Amino acid sequence: MSHGSSDKCEPNFTPLLDLVLQLVMFFMLCANFVMDQTNVDIKLPLATTARAIEATEPYVLYLNVNEKGQVIYPPGALGKDGESSDNPVQLAIWLKRRADEDRLIAGPGNEDKPLRTLIVLRVHKACPFEKTYPVMKACRSAGYQRVQLRAILAGSGPG
């Protein structure tokens, strides 16, 4: 019982191409979400020694601070994209809300453990420390114990 000749047998690549296209779109979206957290206008200071963020850090929140000391919030944080504010009280309230969400996600019994999110401060090199300190203080008052400052290692490219 034959259903046709065997020399015209061609594989159907349409499902394979659909899958590859979906994977490409998925990774493009993921890359865009990561790029939304950093601001290219922030010129980081130079450091003689610096340590890279470990690749095992699953929860990282980037806070960008411009040369005027204004925090540039991540997209959708305050309802508007790219909104900035130099109000430390507003930052403390937003960080406290995020910390409460982190504790809720961690589940019961984890109230005494440190929060899982690492906060990376990307402060413009022209921003005075008097403007940076309230941002750092707001992070600590919200309960975040792991706060790092981002810098460029002298002799390397931008980061």
Rank of each mutant, 00 (worst) to 15 (best):
E83W: 10
A106V: 08
L61P: 02
E130Q: 09
G159H: 15
L95T: 01
D41C: 08
P114R: 01
L23W: 06
A77W: 05
A126P: 00
L44I: 05
G79Y: 05
L149I: 14
V89L: 04
I119F: 00
P75C: 01
A142P: 03
V20Y: 14
P74W: 01
L118G: 02
C30V: 10
P15C: 04
L104I: 11
P134R: 00
R116H: 06
R146W: 10
G107T: 06
D7W: 09
P11R: 01
M25L: 12
N64V: 08
P45D: 11
L44D: 09
P114G: 11
P45W: 03
E67M: 14
N32D: 10
S85T: 12
P75Q: 03
N12F: 10
E101G: 02
Y73A: 01
T49F: 14
I152R: 09
A151D: 05
E83D: 13
K131P: 09
I72M: 14
D7Y: 13
S141L: 13
N87D: 09
S141K: 09
V147W: 12
P15N: 04
C127W: 09
A142M: 10
F33Q: 00
S5Q: 12
H124S: 08
L21M: 12
F129V: 08
L16S: 06
V60M: 10
S5N: 12
E54C: 02
A92P: 04
C139I: 08
E57Y: 14
D100M: 15
M28F: 12
L153H: 07
S6W: 00
L104D: 13
Q90D: 12
I42V: 04
G4K: 00
P114H: 05
T48L: 15
D36F: 01
S141H: 04
E83G: 06
N66V: 00
L91S: 06
N64W: 08
K113M: 06
D18R: 07
R51D: 12
Y62V: 08
C127K: 10
P58L: 08
N12E: 09
L61Y: 02
R98S: 06
G107F: 07
D81E: 09
S84T: 11
I152L: 15
A50N: 06
H3D: 11
G159M: 07
P88Y: 05
V65N: 00
S84F: 04
L121D: 03
H124L: 02
K113D: 10
G69C: 00
K68R: 09
A142F: 04
I152D: 15
A92K: 07
E57S: 10
C9M: 10
